[in-house]
Design a protein around this nucleic acid. Sequence first.
RNA 1: UCCUGAGUAGCUCAAUGGUAGAGCAUCCGGCUGUUAACCGGAGGGUUGUAGGUUCGAGUCCUACCUCAGGAGCCA
Length: 437
Amino acid sequence: MSEIPRIRITDAAKYDGQTVEIAGWLYNLRKSGKIIFPLVRDGSGIIQCVGVKATMPEELFETLKHLTQESSLIVRGKLRAEQRAQGGYELDLESADVVQRVPEETPYPITPKEHGTEFLFDKRHLHLRSRRTHAVMRVRHEIIKAIRDYFDSNGFTLVDTPIFTPAACEGTTTLFEVDYFEDEKVYLTQSGQLYNEATAMALGKVYCFGPTFRAEKSKTRRHLTEFWMVEPEMAYATLEDVKDVAEGLICFVVQRVLENRRTELETLERDITKLEAIKAPFPRISYDQAVEILKRKGSEIEWGGDFGGTDETLLAEEFDRPVMVDRYPAQVKAFYFETDPERPEVALGVDVIASEGYGEVVGGGQRAHSLEVLEQRIRDHNLPPEAFDWYLDLRRYGSVPHAGFGMGVERTVAWLCGLDHIRETIAFPRMLYRTRP
RNA sequence: UCCUGAGUAGCUCAAUGGUAGAGCAUCCGGCUGUUAACCGGAGGGUUGUAGGUUCGAGUCCUACCUCAGGAGCCA
């Protein structure tokens, strides 16, 4: 058919001076008598087109002049560097086909003016087309790709763990019960951790990457009921290895985003200097030291308690990069944590608290590898022993010190994008009062 | 679950207890360099729901519903 190359808007610079075709949607239209400026988006970017009445068929000019927002169309014309246009390039319209015209009786609901959160999330399926959401999704993709590249190039094997699980990983958290399987109660996973320990004993270094479900009545800017988590696990590894890997991972991801997603960060008006500061080494402090800092800053925390959201923010204020806090009281951590041989009251766990008040993005540590200790813990936590029989096998057949952690994807996205609410980090957020669309 | 706040045009918001209004969006008209374009005109309302107080309620009172922010819990 046509000899004209179909291009994507991000590649416009490569086709300067050439006649090209762009297939997309009408983002916005500015018009002035005998000249029109349709803004066309194609998923890769937005480009301003120029249509002059005198140089094109009358019918086409009138069609475009009255085209409605988000109508789909294919435009053809010559690309030209143009300082006055956003993006630096402009397309001189020669011809166009309207694929579907949005009827004026049912106009596109998201106008170029401001809207409230409730409305935008009711129309989330359309909101994804807007500049800001588009930028967040591209950064999210970059982060996920970077996470996988980091593990893949450091000897880890991706082994995904089941979504349906028969028991809790962490006894305290509320689980989503699935009423389908006949023999027993089954729940949606809240972590792949226990299964990771099995695959790590088989493959040495593994990670799983998938959705996670928490039936908590949380209603804050840091929580989703369905979120994505990456969890590496390493055989023959200790708490110190966890810190090194977590630090390496975060630095690698930040670097990738800075290298490949500048435009998106600018669209989001992210303060890039804050991201550039995220470099190794991260400060490493103990829980004891963290409690001291918090008390000095006026927190009501007492030794033995877990940090609240405000505690995490107070702590983050002290540093220009993420801070690693280790050796929490064993009582606030899950049953499977190894304890410090010199101080049995503290667990060999570490949390990475993000800078700028974005809270805990990484949590993990060294796992208990003695059969006797684990059996006692399972009794202490009133967990059903039969559900953990396979897990205990890992301590019967060649148990070794091992360690791992989990990193929340959405919190990382919110942090790197500088968003004030986690719901913006995922295409279709699932929250306490939000299950549609 | 608890605490606080908010529900008025498709959207974002005004309106001392006294005739419900503006901007954007939509439609019509004008404009050859617009940048959330601008200018003129038109249509668009059971003020979240149900009661109550009052001569009179968008406004005051009660209950409920929905949403937002926060707490607890967590990544």
